[in-house]
């Protein structure tokens, strides 16, 4: 639990440094961002250590076994838990944003931020004491810190260059009208958010949903399936590229290339699809989910731009 929390802390620090570097300090961004970052840390550690397990226990024990919802929950346990967790996080994020907009006095923001940070530090300290019973390895902390500082610097420079490039792009005539009306910073943020959603989270969701239909889980088919699949991690890469290309074709309105992308994917596995009905069903479910999520992301992008 401690190492997971530490990874989350590093992630939040990394992104907050980059986003802070991209922003100019207009209408008190620094203070608001401080409150939001400390609130995210506080919410994570509170949820993972105090709310998550009681919540899961509540759902498993309180739904009576005759109820149809119980069957649904037992069958899709991991997905339901994932969705509920993300909904709670989303709620917390909305609450944080409301908190930031409501209070005008900067000292209130400072107070809230410090309170969140204090509770977070104390609970993280208590967790480390409970789990390791020895003092924290400072060597590893320094290593992580230096890696993330270098990484965030590189990312920040790249994003700044992109931002300047977008400013130049707005001067040229571009086929998409949305590019002209928005400020470059908003465009960069929206594009980044949609791209980030499209990669690893979507992979995890598709894997969770379609794992019920995975033919490799069946022991009789295991040896054959392992023989036929190629590199490890190639499936995730194919999925990422497919979603990226489909998003681009939606964005520029050329729907015919979607057909080409999907048929290339089917060609690559044609032997398995033709011979193994289980695999073809699994393949179709995965691909359809992928296209569905890509379309949802495209709609989100249009709404954001």
């Amino acid at each position: 639990a401690v190492s997971q929390s530490l990874h989350f802390v590093w992630g939040v620090l990394f992104t907050s440094v980059i986003l802070y570097g991209l922003n100019d300090d207009s209408d008190g961004f620094t203070l608001k961002w401080l409150v939001i970052v400390s609130g995210l840390l506080f919410g994570y550690i509170l949820f993972e250590n105090k709310i998550k397990h009681p919540l899961n226990f509540f759902f498993t024990s309180n739904l009576s076994s005759e109820h149809s919802l119980h069957m649904f929950y037992v069958k899709n346990r991991s997905i339901v838990q994932f969705v509920i967790q993300q909904m709670l996080y989303l709620l917390w994020i909305f609450i944080l944003n409301e908190l930031v907009t409501v209070s005008d006095d900067p000292w209130i923001l400072v107070g809230i931020g410090l309170l969140f940070l204090l509770i977070f530090m104390v609970s993280l300290y208590a967790l480390t004491r409970k789990e390791s019973r020895s003092h924290y390895p400072w060597n590893r902390l320094l290593k992580h810190a230096s890696t993330y500082i270098v990484l965030s610097a590189v990312t920040l420079i790249l994003l700044q260059i992109l931002l300047q490039g977008l400013e130049l792009l707005q001067l040229a005539t571009f086929p998409v009208g949305a590019f002209v009306t928005q400020s470059p910073y908003r465009m960069l943020i929206a594009l980044n958010f949609v791209l980030l959603l499209l990669m690893k989270p979507t992979n995890q969701v598709i894997r969770a949903v379609s794992s019920k239909y995975d033919p490799k889980k069946d022991t009789a088919l295991t040896s054959q399936a392992e023989q036929d699949s190629g590199f490890k991690g190639a499936g995730a890469m194919i999925g990422n590229l497919e979603r990226l290309l489909i998003l681009l074709s939606f964005f520029f309105g050329s729907l015919l290339s979607v057909v080409a992308i999907l048929s290339i994917k089917a060609f690559a596995r044609y032997k398995l699809i033709a011979e193994d009905p289980y695999f073809s069903e699994y393949f179709v479910i995965g691909t359809m989910l992928s296209v569905l999520i890509t379309f949802a992301c495209y709609a989100l992008l249009v709404l954001l731009l």
Binding site: G11, F14, T15, I36, V100, F193, L196, K200
Partner: peptide, 18 residues
């Protein structure tokens, strides 16, 4: 503001977990 918060959440929750 809210998109920035969502980005921070997505990156640290999905990309930084081992």
């Amino acid at each position: 503001m809210i998109i920035e918060t969502l980005i921070a959440h997505v990156v640290s929750y999905f990309y930084f977990q081992p």
